[in-house]
């Protein structure tokens, strides 16, 4: 089947749908007091919530928002990790030890606990959650970068380049980076999947932006209140998160196979 051969297909389809669909659905904020908690049907394909808001519109807009904020958080994590490693590469050797110690310390904190600390510092808000999500996934990325760099350095051509007088920066950019690139891209995907889950968890706990905004974590929380009478309210955002993360993981497997084949 098509998704066996092109394993990135589910992810691409899902992302395209989430990007285009907001133009075809109604207003995610419009309330309709008379239509509250309508079961899924003709008027509301995914039902409506306690305020009579269209769950389909909210899920679609929430998905777009999740893509954006998880993307921004991934950019913070990957960019930050590259910057930190770049600084360590051009500074004296002692820097690497400190970076490793710092990474180990940050990795000691469970992701959500670390995220909650950052959110406390930034006193919530949409950007607070994005910053927290990005910083949570920074330390794991630094560690992967560090490990793959250490193993890439063992290649003969790296040593040869250094013997020919290439500087640290030149070695890193021209000789190490191309070897590490597949690993770094794959880890960026892992970070993206993790960022979706972390920001949803923070939203579920009540952090991030206004209360009414369509945000998947927040919608899960709202759904908990009306669970007994309207289980479709938490179901839509929850299934959205699951499908998105699963399709990212599925696409990553294909990348992994391609790299393995390429190495062999």
């Amino acid at each position: 089947m098509i998704w066996d051969r092109h394993r990135a297909a589910p992810l691409i389809v899902l992302v395209l749908v989430l990007l285009v669909a907001p133009y075809f659905v109604g207003d995610p904020l419009a309330t309709a007091p008379l239509m509250q908690l309508t079961p899924p049907g003709f008027a509301y394909p995914l039902g409506s919530d306690l305020l009579g808001r269209d769950m389909l519109a909210r899920t679609v807009y929430g998905g777009q928002r999740t893509l954006m904020s998880a993307g921004a958080a991934t950019a913070i994590a990957v960019g930050g990790a590259l910057c930190l490693t770049g600084i360590v590469v051009v500074t004296p050797p002692g820097g690497r030890r400190w970076l490793r110690l710092l990474t180990r310390t940050l990795l000691a904190l469970p992701p959500l606990v670390f995220g909650l600390i950052i959110v406390t510092l930034t006193s919530g808000g949409e950007w607070g959650v994005i910053a927290a999500t990005g910083l949570v996934h920074l330390a794991p990325y630094v560690r992967v970068l560090d490990t793959s760099e250490t193993s890439a350095r063992q290649n003969g051509h790296v040593e040869a380049a250094r013997a020919l007088g290439a500087g640290e920066w030149r070695v890193w950019r021209a000789h190490l980076l191309p070897i590490m690139l597949p690993t770094l891209l794959a880890q960026a995907g892992v970070t993206f999947a993790g960022a979706i889950l972390t920001s949803a968890a923070l939203g579920f706990l009540g952090f991030g932006g206004e209360v009414s905004a369509p945000e998947w974590g927040r919608m899960l929380y709202d759904g908990r209140q009306v669970l007994r009478v309207a289980p479709w309210v938490p179901l839509a955002p929850g299934v959205g998160i699951t499908l998105l993360v699963m399709s990212v993981n599925y696409a990553l497997e294909s990348g992994e196979r391609r790299v393995r084949r390429w190495r062999e």
Partner: peptide, 18 residues
């Protein structure tokens, strides 16, 4: 395994309660 890794705890917990 795939679902366990991808589904947020909030969803699984909610479904379990329902």
């Amino acid at each position: 395994i795939a679902v366990g890794l991808s589904a947020p705890t909030a969803l699984i917990g909610t479904l379990a309660i329902v």
